[in-house]
Simulated scan of single mutants.
Amino acid sequence: MIIPWQQLETTTLNNLIESFVLREGTDYGQDECSLQQKVDDVRRQLANGEVVLVWSELHQTVNIMPRTQIINS
């Protein structure tokens, strides 16, 4: 289920984004970016509709995924 990110409290959204960008294996390319840059980038992608927050009933978790991956599944 897609979660409307605009309806989340700012602190909750920040925590979700930070948790996402701090996961091992998240790749940002060859250039190093600060945590704030990564958070800002994900927030921009949410605002642009490139990515969405997805609730997994099975795993009881929230993930950030490309919109195209959700639409095509």
Rank of each mutant, 00 (worst) to 15 (best):
M1G: 11
Q7S: 09
Q7C: 06
Q7F: 09
L8G: 00
L8C: 02
L8D: 01
L8N: 03
L8M: 06
L8Q: 04
E9A: 12
T10I: 10
T11E: 15
T12S: 08
L13T: 03
N14Q: 11
N15H: 12
N15C: 07
L16C: 02
I17E: 00
S19M: 09
S19W: 10
F20V: 04
F20M: 07
F20N: 07
F20G: 01
V21C: 02
L22P: 00
L22D: 10
R23A: 09
E24M: 07
E24G: 09
E24K: 13
G25E: 01
D27M: 02
Y28E: 06
Y28H: 13
G29M: 05
G29I: 01
G29W: 06
G29C: 02
D31H: 12
E32L: 11
E32W: 08
C33R: 15
S34M: 04
S34E: 09
Q36P: 05
Q36Y: 00
K38P: 00
K38M: 08
K38Q: 11
K38S: 01
V39D: 03
D41R: 09
D41E: 12
R43N: 08
R44I: 03
Q45R: 14
L46E: 03
L46G: 01
N48C: 07
N48A: 13
G49Y: 08
G49E: 05
E50Q: 14
E50R: 12
E50S: 12
V51E: 01
V54A: 09
V54H: 14
V54Y: 15
W55G: 06
E57M: 11
E57I: 12
L58G: 08
L58Q: 15
H59Q: 14
Q60E: 13
T61P: 02
V62Y: 06
V62I: 14
N63E: 13
N63T: 15
I64W: 03
I64L: 10
M65Y: 12
M65L: 15
P66G: 03
P66W: 12
T68G: 11
T68L: 15
Q69A: 14
I70C: 08
I70S: 05
I71R: 14
I71Y: 12
S73P: 10
